[in-house]
């Protein structure tokens, strides 16, 4: 056998990534390029579609609503996921397995099926309203409202908040809390000065992912929402499929893309930041 102690440096690594990059180029970069192009050229060259977008009150209302719903969904996810992820990080192995299972099962069951379940629950003659009537309350309008969309989206997106939060919390040394307690700190003070700052990178990571995914949500708002809760994705689909207006739909798509990546660019430094425990100065 030929001696191979003096192998030439292998230039394979980059070549290995080429097939994946080729798929990305063909099915993502080119299509997004086409959208950007059409937004500036269809029907006439120029920025007409963008002028139209920002001149039409309905569009601005929907854009604002998209941000508003995404914000509320993110906030609800943080509030709900925090205690759950904390419990996951301190639970014994069996309980932890059960808690993880409760997150993973809905995560893997398709979004369409979960949205179907929410339609059954939230509809006017649905489980929640039947229960309210049974308890002697009035019916609440849930389906086709922003409240219904927020409830459904929060449940669908919750796993994306719990998992990064859990990953960070698992790495927090709980002895730090004991140390603080033994030095006489009140539990509330211990939480706000030690635990919360250490868990913040997880909160930021999860919140960023949830917010970005919520901005582009399509199926859940479409099936649970009504005219008063339309989000930007639905508007894009209407422009392209119903009105065959590729230019305007494209301009809306570019707005959504810029919003998504803009938010990611602003938020990503916070995700990597390591939080030092302040020595009481703050």
């Amino acid at each position: 056998m030929a001696s191979d102690t003096a192998r030439p440096p292998w230039r394979g690594p980059f070549l290995l990534t080429l097939p994946a990059l080729a798929v990305l180029l063909l099915v993502m970069a080119v299509p997004l390029g086409v959208i950007v192009l059409r937004s500036f050229t269809d029907p006439a060259p120029g920025v007409g579609n963008y002028v139209w977008f920002f001149d039409t009150p309905v569009n601005l209302t929907v854009l604002a609503r998209t941000f508003k719903i995404s914000f509320w969904v993110t906030l609800c996810c943080v509030v709900v996921a925090y205690p759950y992820a904390f419990a996951m990080s301190v639970a014994g192995p069996r309980l932890r397995l059960l808690l993880i299972l409760c997150v993973l099962v809905p995560f893997w069951v398709s979004g369409v099926v979960r949205t179907l379940a929410w339609v059954i629950l939230l509809q006017d003659s649905g489980v929640i309203n039947k229960g309210l009537v049974w308890l002697g309350f009035d019916k609440v309008k849930l389906i086709r409202t922003q409240l219904g969309v927020t409830i459904g989206m929060t449940q669908v997106l919750l796993p994306f908040m719990i998992m990064p939060l859990y990953a960070v919390m698992r790495g927090i040394d709980l002895r730090l809390l004991q140390a603080a307690r033994s030095l006489g700190a009140h539990p509330v003070k211990t939480f706000f000065q030690i635990y919360l700052p250490l868990s913040l990178p997880g909160v930021f990571a999860g919140a960023t992912i949830v917010f970005i995914l919520a901005l582009g949500f399509y199926i859940t708002p479409l099936l649970l929402g009504g005219p008063q809760s339309t989000m930007l994705s639905t508007l894009i689909q209407q422009q392209v499929l119903s009105l065959l207006n590729w230019g305007r739909g494209g301009a809306m798509g570019v707005v959504l893309l810029v919003a998504t990546f803009g938010f990611l660019a602003v938020a990503s430094p916070f995700m990597r930041q390591k939080y030092k425990i302040s020595g009481g100065g703050r």
Binding site: V30, P31, L32, I35, G216, S233, I236, Q237, G253, L256
Partner: peptide, 8 residues
């Protein structure tokens, strides 16, 4: 966003 990709 899914819809933007889908349209493209």
């Amino acid at each position: 966003p899914g819809v933007v990709l889908a349209v493209g």
